[in-house]
Design a protein around this nucleic acid. Structure first.
Length: 835
DNA sequence: CTCCTTTGTCTTTTT
DNA sequence: GACAAAGGAG
């Protein structure tokens, strides 16, 4: 596309942003204002203006955003040109840079990246090694202190100097030990990836200059979410040419908890004098009603950049808010509503359910399974954090990096080889004493005092590892072969099969999926190397010389695994209902959005309400709410429940203040309690609101049952057993509510005893179907069972197949379940297991 | 050394 | 209610 074409169809502001190429530029882009379009067209415009594609750096926050941007650039330019633009996340970019020069900081170039789990394990072992009480020093708490310190670029030494009390002095010791062990394992944590890059730039100006020359035009997406270290990286890189374009929206800053500093965007003009500011305020996504509601909520925040989003889109329907009695009812209604909408022509994939916390997904998932609705849960338990996947990855890490002690300790006895804690402790002691790595100690077990017969078992392990190393080094295997070897030759698969059949099979399927991932990674990599082969080496005019060897392949694969989140794996071809947290939803859009759990203490979170500075934290929650509202194109459904199980205890919830902040004419509100129709919750401020609320609910079952039903088209199942419910409320509800109201308000626990083990949770059973379990099933496949066969369903248990019928999209199966009765379901989604 | 039971913590969000 | 860590029995 030429320059002219790149400007076609853009509004004046957008055009201005695309054309403004040199010098600092801040684009304040409201939700749905065509931000990605502007960014990608700007890249195209730069290239059309004669800038070499490899001189352009575009930084995003997620791999998904990076991929999307790359695809869109692809659509504008010649494929080859597009691929030479460096589009990347902060973290991956830093890894790339560090792989070149980190040896100058005393690391080996094949460093490993420790994820959150690894970090916790490491911190715990530091606490133990220092002889500190792990009740006093909790790994999570310590880790968050360390992480914030790192985000302020405070290293262990200066943290120690500034430690003022006993606790901090011990944390300082842990921090120091943590850093020492990381270094010894040639490992970096997430924060290090950024920090080491800054250090490298500061201490080696030639390195910095090399990259400044390479990245003459820099663009940063979601700039409001950058933290101090990321800011510093950008500042330094842009320092020479000052061609920095940042895009962001202060109203969508939602990552303060992980160090994002909203000041970065608020003070951009001060930091980069002479910066041009362009505001994109026209929204192309949502109806006027939805936008109005979003604006009404966000206007309650102070200290934002002045702007108001507007649209030429039609008015549309008012957002609807509904209050439900329990979280289960809320979930059930939403799922039903979504499936009815789907039946009425709105596809499932055009709808999304958003919530504040991952824990809320469980109920929704359960209802989907009950109603046989294909769904996808984005985020939550990360695929790569599952036991079997982490086990395999740990093997790969040991194979790739022989000083990765953590990975080694994880798999030394997986599958069980009779190497227990005692032996591990002895090996560790020996390694520490001789200042060698854990693995190195394993290679000479006969030197370890008191090791006895364990030496032979250790030998079995190291022999295996050495063999795997030999194969990959000599190119005797590809990734697929290596993973299969780890799975089969270590006895891992065999041990898995000793678990119950369903779990074992799912775990094996997950490993299979990981193999698929490896195969496509290898293919992509080959293509990428081809492209890079024509790029000039940074700092020189020479061409990259990509040396092909198996060890690099493995390292790169591991790197990819440690930097991708589950969200990157979404696939939009299947017609499935999407569920995710508000955070994950940023940057996405759907025709219909259900935003559930609109309750004070959940959203805004209790933590924000009780924070030292509630004002500020609630503002962040409000921005999150704004993000949620603005995901919707046409229909926005808000809901809350009065009763919800949180942390294993039933809590009585108050309607979210964000609902109160919505004027009555901005949304159609339906409350459960007996209250004049249309009357909002305003006026019931503070905690008295809950009192009113509770009293209102005593009239349950009778007055409200019927009136409510009518608003729902008469298909209300709430009042199905009013007697039961009333009794329950009178007994259970009343007492808890009293506690709730007169005690310490919202958070008073109503302790329920440890429940029976019988009702195992959905995720406990599956642990696995969550996420991407091929819900929706892209390909129709004949089931391996037929009438008369006994099958197992994840929720309904065992049953007998009555009929298998071929449908248009999938096979339809009728099963008579032993306890749940007769159900009809799609085979692809139900994932029945023959037993 | 392994398996099983008990206890404690967690929930804010994620690269 | 789920999960991980610690504790205890064989």
């Amino acid at each position: 596309m030429n320059k002219e074409e790149l400007l076609n169809g853009l509004n004046e502001k957008q055009k201005e942003a695309v054309r403004y190429l040199d010098g600092p530029l801040l684009i304040l882009a409201g939700a749905g204002s065509g931000k990605t379009r502007v960014l990608t067209h700007r890249i195209g415009y730069l290239i059309e203006s004669g800038v070499a594609p490899w001189n352009i750096l575009a930084i995003t926050f997620t791999n998904k955003a990076a991929g999307e941007m790359r695809d869109r650039v692809d659509g504008l330019l010649m494929a080859r040109t597009a691929q030479q633009v460096f589009v990347s996340t902060f973290h991956s970019m830093c890894v790339r840079l560090l792989r070149y020069d980190i040896d100058r900081l005393g690391y080996q170039k094949d460093f490993t990246i420790y994820d959150t789990d690894d970090q916790r394990t490491l911190v715990r072992s530091c606490i133990k090694a220092l002889g500190l009480d792990n009740k006093m020093y909790r790994d999570r708490a310590v880790l968050s202190i360390i992480s914030s310190a790192k985000n302020e670029m405070t290293d262990a030494e200066s943290y120690t100097d500034s430690a003022s009390d006993f606790y901090e002095r011990n944390v300082a010791k842990i921090y120091t030990e943590y850093e020492r062990q990381l270094k010894a394992s040639n490992a970096l944590d997430f924060d290090d990836l950024l920090i080491k890059t800054v250090q490298l730039f500061r201490r080696f100006p030639d390195v910095l200059e090399k990259w400044q020359e390479r990245f003459r035009y820099i663009m940063v997406d979601e700039y409001q979410d950058t933290n101090n270290v990321q800011f510093e990286i950008v500042r330094m890189l842009a320092d020479k040419y000052r061609n920095l374009c940042v895009v962001g929206d202060d109203d969508q800053s939602i990552y303060k908890f992980r160090g994002a500093n909203i000041e970065n965007i608020l003070s951009f003009e001060r930091t980069f004098p002479g910066a041009k500011v362009i505001k994109l305020e026209q929204n192309y996504r949502s109806t006027r009603s939805i936008l109005n509601a979003a604006n009404q909520v966000i206007r309650n925040n102070k200290g934002r950049k002045e702007k108001e989003l507007w649209t030429e889109n039609e008015e549309g329907e008012l957002p609807v808010y509904r209050e439900y009695e329990t979280a289960a009812q809320e979930a059930d209604r939403i799922i039903r509503q979504a499936s009815e909408a789907a039946a009425g022509g709105r596809s499932l994939k055009s709808q999304a359910i958003l919530y504040r916390t991952n824990a809320q997904s469980r109920l929704l998932e359960e209802k989907c399974i009950e109603r046989n609705i294909p769904y996808i849960i984005v985020g939550g338990v990360n695929f790569y954090q599952r036991k079997e996947i982490k086990d395999i990855i740990s093997y790969l890490r040991v194979i790739s990096n022989d000083v990765d002690d953590l990975a080694c300790q994880r798999v030394i006895n997986v599958p069980k080889r009779g190497i227990g804690q005692t032996t591990v402790n002895r090996v560790t002691a020996f390694a520490v004493q001789n200042n060698i790595s854990f693995y190195a100690a394993l290679t000479r077990p006969e030197n370890i005092p008191g090791i006895g017969s364990a030496a032979k078992k250790i030998r079995t392990f190291t022999d295996l590892i050495e063999e795997f190393r030999r194969r990959i080094r000599e190119g005797g295997t590809d990734l697929r072969g290596l993973i299969e070897a780890v799975r089969d030759e270590t006895g891992y698969a065999e041990e898995l099969k000793k678990e119950d059949a369903v779990t074992a099979e799912t775990r094996l399927e997950n490993i299979e999926e990981m193999i698929n991932k490896a195969v496509s990674f290898e293919a992509d990599r080959a293509a990428r190397l081809g492209i890079e082969a024509v790029l000039p080496e940074p700092g020189t005019d020479e061409i990259f010389t990509a040396e092909e060897n198996g060890e690099d392949l493995l390292e790169e694969f591991l790197e990819e695994l440690s930097l991708v989140a589950d969200i990157d794996r979404t696939n939009d071809t299947d017609d499935v209902l999407t569920m995710m947290t508000l955070h994950s939803a940023k940057g996405l859009e759907f025709d219909t959005v259900y935003l559930c759990g609109m309750e004070d203490g959940l959203f805004p979170s209790a933590a924000s309400i009780n924070a030292e500075d509630p004002e500020a934290e609630i503002e962040e929650e409000r921005r999150l709410c704004y993000v949620g509202f603005t995901r919707a194109r046409k229909w926005l459904n808000l809901s809350s429940a009065k009763e919800r199980m949180v942390n294993g205890e039933t809590r009585y919830m108050k309607v979210s203040r964000f609902i109160d902040e919505l004027p009555d004419d901005a949304a159609e509100k339906h409350f459960r309690s007996k209250r004049n129709a249309g009357e909002s919750f305003r006026g019931f401020g503070g905690y008295e609101g809950r009192m009113e609320h509770s009293l209102g609910s005593t009239s349950f079952g009778s007055s409200y049952g019927s009136s409510y039903a009518s608003s729902y088209g008469g298909r209300d199942d709430f009042g199905s057993r009013p007697g039961d419910r009333e009794a329950y409320n009178a007994y259970n509800g009343f007492s808890s509510r009293m506690i709730g109201n007169f005690g310490s308000l919202d958070r008073t626990p109503v302790r329920s005893g440890r429940g029976s083990k019988g009702a195992k949770g959905l995720s406990g059973l599956s642990g696995i179907s969550k996420g991407f379990g091929n819900a929706g099933g892209a390909v129709k496949q004949k089931p391996d069972y037929g009438p008369g066969d006994r099958v197992l369903h994840i929720k309904f248990g065992t049953g007998t197949v009555e009929e298998v019928k071929e449908g248009a999209k999938d096979y339809e199966v009728t099963v008579d379940f032993d306890t749940a009765g007769r159900k009809r379901m799609f085979a692809g989604f139900a994932k029945l297991k023959k037993v």
